[in-house]
Design a protein around this nucleic acid. Structure first.
Length: 503
DNA sequence: GAGTTTGAAACT
DNA sequence: CAGTTTCAAACTC
């Protein structure tokens, strides 16, 4: 504020000039709607050409009265003339005071007085029937602590004490608004910004949410997985704007998955859809299990701004594989996670999402199988050596060894039926099963199927991988390793390049 | 429902 | 701008 100005005389003018609720009028992130159909929910009154008119039209006292005082200026808001047809159409399509019906979310939390978001983010107030009711005691509802005030509405039926956020205290409130805006011109703006990707996803009729918290959260203890976290509450991932510690609100986070899993299950158990729950749990209950190594990689790649772009891209690649390899055609698990993740996945949506093809995943999987086979051979020979050594040097061991049936000996030699190899294959297959532990029987079956699964096609890639296998099994281990790693690197590089180009 | 925890907002 | 305090929602018991 200029020294010559006072809060009271400068506030109103500054208000209207600075307030830009552009984003307010967009759908909340989790309620993205198909373009042609009318919006079904909005936290705030739909935009109006005439703010004065809006104020007059609003029978409910709870509607940002201070925002609607200078229509001319409002009309000059850039977004009304910028290429944002969606917003313009909103303006013309909806009367100001109409409260659209609630859109039922795919994942709903159990009803609770606290279930409404705490912060003035777009996702709040998903139930238009009941206005938020604050419980302020010391702020007179004239600070951003107050949800109503922060949301730009009068308190109405709240449980607040000494409330000044009402018509009777209009002057005081105006002043408070002025002070608040002086402190932060964006104080009343929505905190969640959508990205261009959101538009595209809307066109694709996906419920993708690509949002980002403008300021970012600063959580320290909640892991950004509780509603204390603004990002979490807004159903978006933490972004580079955040300064949170020990953040678990990133794409691919096991903990985050677990939470949504739990919530989904709770809701459906309540709704009596136990069949669906069983299906969901059955098909994905193991997804939350994650190998330490994999988790390490995830955490390593959960990168924020400080992480190198290349690394990020690789992480996204891994995440994309994670997504792609999920049986997205399945209605149970993938539905839940597609719905949940799509609402949550934010700015870190993989740039490879549209680049990766099933063949890429196959290629990578085939490499893992190769690794498994090499490991199997290595391991089998090591065991053989140990056996020979113990046979020669230890009578007892010799007896035990000789007691082995020929079949057992043969089993040891079989590439992917060894413990270590099982692990290797499990890691490889893990992509398809989201870390679900596999029984030995299943693994054995998969061993037999690997070839047809991954090399059944007659593509050049398939042939080249077969060659690698031959080479791997016939040449020195060092050479095998080199070949495999080189191929793996090639695959990753290719995808990173694709991602970079797209990015 | 009371008490505690949490993190944004406000203040210094 | 960093550290501290205030505040009210979220959470726990």
């Amino acid at each position: 504020m200029e020294p010559s100005e006072t809060a009271s005389d400068s506030a109103p003018r500054k208000l209207v000039r600075q307030l830009d609720f552009t984003l307010v009028h967009e759908d909340p992130p989790h309620l993205k709607l198909p373009p042609p159909s009318p919006p079904q929910h909005s936290l705030l009154p739909p935009p109006s050409h005439s703010l004065l008119q809006l104020q007059l039209n609003l029978q409910s006292p709870g509607q940002r009265p201070w925002l609607y005082s200078e229509p001319q200026e409002q009309q000059q808001q850039p977004w009304l003339h910028s290429p944002r047809p969606k917003l313009v159409s909103w303006v013309s399509r909806f009367p100001p005071v109409q409260k659209p019906p609630v859109k039922v979310l795919p994942v709903v939390k159990p009803d609770s007085p606290r279930s409404q978001p705490r912060f003035n983010v777009e996702s709040k107030d998903t139930n238009p029937k009941k206005q938020k009711q604050c419980n302020c005691k010391n702020s007179r509802c004239l600070k951003l602590y107050c949800e109503c005030f922060a949301a730009g509405i009068y308190c109405d039926g709240c449980n607040c004490v000494n409330c000044h956020n009402n018509v009777d205290n209009e002057a005081a409130r105006q002043e408070a608004v002025g002070i608040t805006l002086e402190r932060n011109p964006n104080a009343f703006r929505p905190k969640i910004a959508s990205s261009p990707q959101e538009q595209r996803n809307s066109k694709e009729n996906e419920a993708q949410v690509i949002g980002k918290h403008n300021k970012g959260c600063h959580c320290k203890k909640s892991g950004c997985l509780k509603k204390y976290c603004e990002c979490f509450q807004a159903n978006i991932l933490c972004s580079e704007n955040c300064k949170c510690m020990d953040c678990k609100n990133f794409e691919g986070s096991t903990e985050r998955r677990a939470i949504f899993h739990r919530e989904y299950n709770q809701v459906h158990i309540k709704q009596g859809t136990s069949d669906a729950v069983t299906e969901v749990v059955g098909s994905s209950g193991y997804r939350n299990h994650i190998t330490p190594k994999r988790r390490k990689i995830q955490e390593m790649f959960s990168g924020k701004a400080t992480v190198d772009q290349t690394v990020n891209t690789t992480a996204q690649y891994l995440q994309a594989i994670d997504r792609m390899a999920s049986p997205s055609s399945s209605l149970s698990d993938s539905f839940v996670f597609d719905q949940v993740n799509s609402r949550i996945s934010g700015s870190s949506r993989s740039v490879l999402a549209d680049v990766l093809q099933p063949q890429n995943v196959k290629n990578l999987c085939s490499l893992f199988v190769i690794l498994a086979r090499v490991a199997a051979k290595t391991n089998a020979e090591t065991r053989e050596k140990i056996d020979r050594k113990t046979k020669a040097g230890n009578f007892k061991t010799s007896v035990a060894s000789s007691a082995k049936s020929p079949q057992e000996t043969k089993d040891v030699r079989q590439p992917v039926c060894d413990d270590h190899v099982n692990k290797a294959v499990a890691d490889a297959v893990d992509i398809d099963n989201y870390n679900r532990p596999l029984s030995p029987e299943t693994l054995a079956l998969m061993c037999d199927e690997q070839d047809s699964m991954f090399f059944g096609n007659t593509s050049a890639d398939g042939a080249s991988h077969k060659n690698i296998i031959q080479k791997s099994l016939n040449s020195d281990y060092g050479e095998q390793e080199r070949l495999i790693m080189t191929k793996l690197l090639d695959v990753l590089r290719e995808l990173v390049t694709l991602g970079s180009i797209k990015g």
